[in-house]
């Protein structure tokens, strides 16, 4: 009775796995194919003609894409840093402290979820123009941080609540002062959540188009901003080449995050800051 059942489950699991892989791998494969394709007319199943025009456009064009790429990475890293620091502090307040208006504060941390980016971008733009932050990198970083914060806060709040104050109490009675407790116990135990939140914030910032265009006013160029016209104009070779670079860069940054996690002692013998 149980054997055929188990077999059926296994089969179902395989089918889901294959569908999942198709959904992820096929679009990537098509992007890769398009990035090196010169010509791929309709009924033909495979591209006709190999070309490096796309990559050449990105790296040899008049607009220096390398600088833009670095600027995008810098903005995204700054956003993840800011979002994580603010989220970690908010999470601590929400989990470990009682204060007047706590529930309201909890609600405001997820408020940006509820307002469409297009709507709130207008408000932010008006405010930033007044403050002189419009068309600046700092302005873009702040605007992206607003979008990333709710995600980071939700993730880190969950981890903070799960970790609790138990280990901190223990560290204190074992002779750790507040700073030592933070460095040796609090941060390491929150690290998985911190890195998830950082990755999330990074990708939100790195792929942000509309908000960057509005706040940056075209002066602050990011990779997504430069890439978008090619997607819209329909030059698939160049658009796909951009897509490929986007994918590669994100992948490298995430690998970096992962290796930081390992280096900082979550999975290895070395302890944090020792």
């Amino acid at each position: 009775m149980s054997m055929p059942n188990a077999r059926a489950y296994k089969k179902a699991a395989w089918i889901f796995l294959v569908i999942y892989l198709i959904c992820i791998l096929v679009p990537i494969a098509i992007t890769v194919a398009w990035a090196f394709t010169d010509y791929w007319p309709w009924p033909s199943l495979f591209p006709l003609g190999f070309s490096t025009r796309g990559l050449a456009e990105i790296f040899n064009s008049y607009s220096p894409v390398g600088g833009i790429l670095l600027q995008s990475i810098f903005i995204a890293l700054a956003v993840s840093f800011l979002a994580v620091v603010i989220a970690a502090l908010s999470a601590r307040a929400l989990v470990h402290h009682d204060f007047f208006g706590k529930e309201l504060f909890r609600f405001t941390t997820i408020l940006p979820f509820l307002i469409p980016v297009t709507v709130f971008a207008m408000g932010v733009q008006v405010a930033f123009i007044r403050m002189g932050l419009a068309n600046t990198v700092v302005g873009v970083i702040i605007a992206h941080t607003i979008v990333a914060l709710p995600y980071a806060t939700v993730i880190i709040t969950d981890v903070t609540a799960a970790t609790g104050a138990r280990l901190e109490e223990q560290a204190r009675v074992l002779g750790a002062d507040k700073l030592q407790t933070l460095a040796h116990v609090t941060v390491p135990s929150l690290l998985p959540g911190i890195l998830s939140a950082a990755s999330m914030s990074y990708i939100l910032s790195f792929s942000q188009y509309f908000l960057t265009l509005l706040i940056g006013g075209g002066t602050v160029k990011t990779f997504a901003v430069v890439m978008f016209p090619f997607l819209a104009s329909g030059d698939r070779t160049i658009a796909s080449a951009y897509g490929l670079v986007f994918l590669g860069v994100t992948f490298i940054v995430f690998l970096l995050f992962e290796s930081i996690l390992k280096r900082l002692g979550m999975r290895e013998h070395q302890s944090f800051f020792s």
């Binding site: 138990r166 280990l167 109490e169 223990q170 009675v173 002779g175 116990v185 390491p188 135990s189 002692g265």
Partner: peptide
């Protein structure tokens, strides 16, 4: 003074 708690509280990220 030092406490040994009922719920042990070993630091999971250390040996």
């Amino acid at each position: 003074t030092s406490i040994v708690f009922q719920d042990v509280r070993l630091f999971p990220h250390m040996t």
